[in-house]
Design a protein around this nucleic acid. Structure first.
Length: 931
RNA sequence: GCCCGGGUGGCGGAACUGGUAGACGCGCUGGAUUCAAAAUCCAGUUCUUUCGGGAGUGCGGGUUCGAUUCCCGCCCCGGGUACCA
């Protein structure tokens, strides 16, 4: 009987669904193992062969861990709020929920064909009210919390109110807005509710504030920093501008330090940790206040090099710095305002484009240097950003390239502060310079001088050691329809959370999914979008208005891993017992493109929920693997310009041609099916061709992202139909290391198909009947198997999936060679292979007479004894080059080997009467003789 | 610019803590089987060679009996980030 993957795969997929083989439960005395994939956004395009790469790898791990006796949680769901469904709704009027539903059905169908061992009982969808009820609930917990820097934890807002009533906020060390005023307990008590709430808002972890945001006019919404790339929106590539708006934000900056130190406790790739470290951007230094001459104002600067303070020859403020207006002298006013206006008009993109143009304006003001008492001019310049540090710098042109350029351009002095350094050549930016002209720091290098400088600054009460972060608070509101409504209503302008019993706050019906004529978000179109604390949602006119922005795409994904642990709970986002059992994700599989978005936010929410004693873990995922992208191999034909004639790849240099993408499905290897091409589009019906000398038309190849646009999409359904899911799974793993980007290559799949057929044939006799023998396997058969077990087990434990396919192949080839049909051997082999190729394994397993699924089997035990050799062949080298080989008993001692080598004929020849200087014998490895 | 990765046959890629470089697969070449094709099987496949060998893991040095692996200096590719003070 031949291997019929079609029938086998269908049969076992149905069997698994029916028997619920992958259902996880918490009542187990086995150790737990949680394998999670980043859940997909169900787009209308469906899956291509690149998408399942990570799912296949994580499925191998899930299956392996089950065989190893773990209680495995391996769930799947959908990140189903998102822009495409909304855009489609705007165009067609169809509710995004319907589009989403259709797309999910298609995704599920495609996923099911690949034989994944997901526990579908725990499926979640972020757009499902039973799910986002808890996203909203967590938002309210964030709203009702503040961050104490004393205990380095989030705490309930009520604690803060208690402190305010007792002592005011003078003693409170919290992460809060910069403009928070200080007040005493007595003052607090005189504030009315609105004033008190305004202050509390400056402390809440989910807060509303007037802030500068990335506004994308084309998308009609604000974007988070990680959604903006080079001044353009990541999605769609539309221009983004800076705009000041009332916005909901998340105080992620409170967690900056813990997000940084937490990285040391988790097993994520170096590059990913590095990306997060850069994004958080911690820099240590000092903040220093400079008094403005003849005024009460002070300018605070942040510097990482306080040791260079004697090199300060001017100050630069960001053009939109709040002090600019107050310190500018009347004669400079006009020029300064013109400059401010000019920079404000520039979009972020424009500013970055001419980053090399130096511009600025003198304010007319001076500050007094705290050590030298010299008068230092104050400038404004757009190379200083208001969003970083204090928005003001002390310029040290001798020690900083940008300051040097600025000084050079405006002819400002460049005082030297380094020994043996010529400031006319450029600045000395590294920390190797020895200071001079720096009073108490003369003769010191940066490291010692910095701490001395900070001491001196502190002594003078003009500043202190400070740490600065690049990380900004995260914008948490979208002017869009298809997202979680923010569960806040406004009672007389005071934001208050919707009561728990009125959650979920579901999306209202609207007539259109566009913003209103007044530029309000689409939710403002709803007739029934007011809230009454007793009655819940009421019609407009009653109660209080509800917030009309919705949550950003990353809200639902910031805690979904917890929901899988208790997906159906209606009383809590997750039951304590269950999350205590499952804890953190043991293996998280997903793309590296989420490094500064999702993977930061999910760590943030995890730490917050941990602080609130709601979950036991402080980090969401212990181990993270970033699977690479499978790229498409686009195929190109070359049209001779101005004609309808196409020239084959090798001859195109002789003509003036334009490359045109052609559907990869018409191309086998590089040769194109001419007829299918002609029928593809009417314009090609009459195309003529210049062929290769062998009469074929060869296409060119370009590796690029798999996309409809390039006609290079390969659908997994097609591969399942032609080669089977097991072959597809094996092939994707065999393509190379999981982390690497690699181009898809359909041709190579023949190799793994061949392997599957060979494996199948091991179980069948020449007449084609299933036949295995109960005889005791031979030593050689055991050896072939145990070599494979040893390698594969080691690889699985290291999360390496490509070479294990090689080892399966080697094992099957050896057993075929040995004509092995021993039950004992084949049964264990079946279990080994079942992680990669579950369908064929299940079929063979059942044919071997097992009642239960192969997923309940036990991973074979590796026995070294089968691998021990009687003999070992030593390569013998002279001066590092292998000259001959010598076979000796495996248990030969070092001395035995040595004497055998020395008495060998070949060796005598090489030694030629000389005494060797040294003889090196590495047991079971090599012999090296040095002359 | 800075910070992370990485450079191995025609191709994807192996090589554990320094120990016979190129496993395994694709492709290619030759052969067997076949009326023929598919499928299958066998042999070969880093380069070079006067068939003894010689060279070889981006380039140049170093440590070592021995280096793809460790160290120093370059070059190139990929990713991240960027007036971040």
């Amino acid at each position: 009987m031949e291997y019929n993957f079609e029938a086998i795969e269908k049969k076992w997929q149905e069997y698994w669904a029916e028997h619920q083989n992958f259902k996880a439960n918490e009542n187990s005395d086995k150790p737990k193992y949680y394998v999670l994939d980043m859940f997909p956004y169900p787009s209308g395009a469906g899956l291509h062969v690149g998408h399942p790469l990570g799912y296949i790898a994580s499925d191998i791990v899930a299956r392996y861990k089950r065989l190893k006796g773990f209680n495995v949680l391996h769930p799947m769901g959908y990140d189903s709020f998102g822009l495409p469904a909304e855009q489609y709704a705007i165009q067609t009027g169809q509710h995004p929920a319907i589009t989403t539903e259709t797309n999910i059905a298609r995704y599920r169908e495609q996923l099911d064909r690949l034989g994944f061992s997901f526990d579908w009982d725990r499926e979640i969808r972020t757009s499902d009210p039973s799910y986002f009820k808890w996203t909203q609930w967590i938002f309210i917990q964030l709203f009702n919390a503040w961050y104490s820097n004393d205990v380095k934890k989030a705490r309930p807002i009520q604690d803060l109110i208690d402190i305010f009533e007792l002592d005011g906020n003078v003693m409170v060390d919290a992460t809060c807005d910069e403009d928070t005023p200080s007040f005493t307990a007595a003052e607090w008590k005189t504030f009315d509710e609105k004033q008190q709430e305004d202050i509390l808002l400056k402390y809440r972890l989910a807060y509303l504030s007037e802030s500068v945001v990335n506004w994308c006019p084309a998308l009609g919404t604000v974007l988070a920093n990680d959604e903006v790339k080079d001044g353009l929106s990541e999605r769609g590539g539309h221009p983004v501008e800076q705009r000041s708006m009332m916005q909901w934000s998340m105080r992620i900056t409170a967690y900056a330090d813990r997000l940084l130190t937490g990285l040391d406790t988790i097993d994520w790739s170096d590059s990913l940790k590095e990306i997060q470290r850069n994004w958080i951007g911690k820099s240590k230094g000092a903040s220093v206040f400079f008094n403005v001459a003849n005024s009460d104002h002070q300018i605070e600067v942040f510097t990482t090099r306080p040791d260079t303070i004697y090199g300060v020859s001017f100050m630069v403020l960001a053009p939109d710095h709040e002090l600019v207006e107050q310190i500018t002298t009347s004669d400079r006013k006009e020029a300064v305002e013109a400059y401010q206006e000019q920079t404000a008009k520039k979009s972020e993109r424009e500013r970055m484009a001419d980053a090399k143009t130096i511009s600025g304006e003198f304010t007319g003001a001076y500050v007094v240097h705290p050590f030298t008492q010299e008068q230092i001019p104050v400038w404004i310049g757009d190379y200083v950003l208001s969003g970083y540090g204090t928005g003001a710098i002390m310029a040290v042109p001798a020690g900083d390239q940008r300051d040097w350029n600025f000084a050079n351009h405006f002819d400002l002095p460049i005082p030297n502060i380094f020994e043996n350094h010529d400031v006319s050549e450029g600045p000395l930016e590294d920390k190797t310079g020895v200071l001079t002209n720096s009073d108490f720091m003369n003769g010191l290098k940066a490291k010692k001088a910095i701490s001395k400088a900070i001491d001196a600054i502190y002594q003078k009460s003009i500043g202190s050691a400070t740490t600065n972060f690049k990380l900004r608070d995260a914008v948490f509101g979208r002017q869009r329809y298809w997202g979680e409504p923010i569960p806040i209503y406004y009672e007389n302008g005071i934001p208050k959370p919707i009561k728990d019993e009125h959650l979920p706050l579901e999306l209202p019906e609207v007539d259109k999914y566009l913003p209103t004529e007044d530029g309000e978000p689409p939710l403002a179109r709803a007739d029934k979008w007011n809230y009454h604390p007793e009655k819940g949602i009421v019609a407009n006119g009653e109660g209080f208005p509800i917030e009309t922005t919705t949550m950003p795409g990353w809200a639902g994904s910031s805690w979904y891993y917890l929901r899988y642990q208790d997906a159906k709970n209606t009383e809590a986002f997750v039951e304590a017992d269950k999350t205590n059992y499952w804890g953190a994700v043991d293996l998280y599989m997903g793309g590296a493109e989420h490094a500064t978005g999702h993977l930061l936010y999910v760590r943030f929410w995890t730490k917050f929920l941990h602080d609130m004693d709601l979950i036991p873990v402080d980090e969401p995922a212990k181990k993270l693997i970033n699977q690479g992208m499978i790229q498409g191999q686009s195929k190109l034909v070359y049209r001779i310009n101005g004609t309808n004639e196409f020239v084959t790849a090798s001859k195109r240099v002789d003509y003036d041609t334009t490359a045109i993408h052609v559907d990869v499905n018409f191309v086998n290897g590089d040769s194109m099916d001419i007829e299918r091409f002609k029928n593809w589009r009417s314009e090609y019906n009459n195309a003529t061709f210049i062929f290769e000398d062998d009469g074929t038309y060869q296409c060119g190849t370009e590796v690029e992202k798999m996309s409809k646009r390039w006609y290079n999409v390969v659908n997994p359904d097609d591969i399942c139909a032609s080669h089977g899911a097991d072959a597809l799974r094996l092939h994707e793993m065999f393509l190379g290391p999981i982390e690497l980007h690699k181009p898809w290559n359909t041709k190579g799949i023949d190799g793994v198909s061949k392997f599957l057929r060979k494996l199948w044939r091991l179980f069948f006799n020449e007449a084609g009947e299933f036949e295995v023998s109960d005889d005791e396997p031979t030593k050689a058969e055991y050896k072939a198997l145990h070599k494979c077990i040893q390698k594969v087990e080691d690889e699985f434990d290291r999360f390496v999936f490509n070479t294990s396919v090689s080892h399966f192949m080697i094992c099957v080839n050896e057993l075929t060679e040995l004509n092995c049909n021993k039950r004992n051997i084949l049964e264990q082999l079946t279990v080994l292979v079942s992680c990669h190729a579950p369908h064929i394994s299940e079929e063979l397993w059942k044919r071997l007479g097992n009642d239960k699924s192969v997923t309940t089997a036990v991973f074979p035990e590796f026995k070294e004894a089968y691998l021990i050799e009687n003999e070992y062949t030593y390569p013998v080298s002279f001066n590092g080059k292998v000259r001959f080989k010598l076979t000796l008993p495996a248990d030969a001692s070092k001395e035995d080997v040595e004497s055998a080598v020395m008495s060998n004929e070949q060796a005598t020849k090489w030694l030629d009467g000389k005494e060797p200087k040294k003889v090196i014998v590495v047991p079971k490895r090599i012999v090296n003789i040095v002359l």
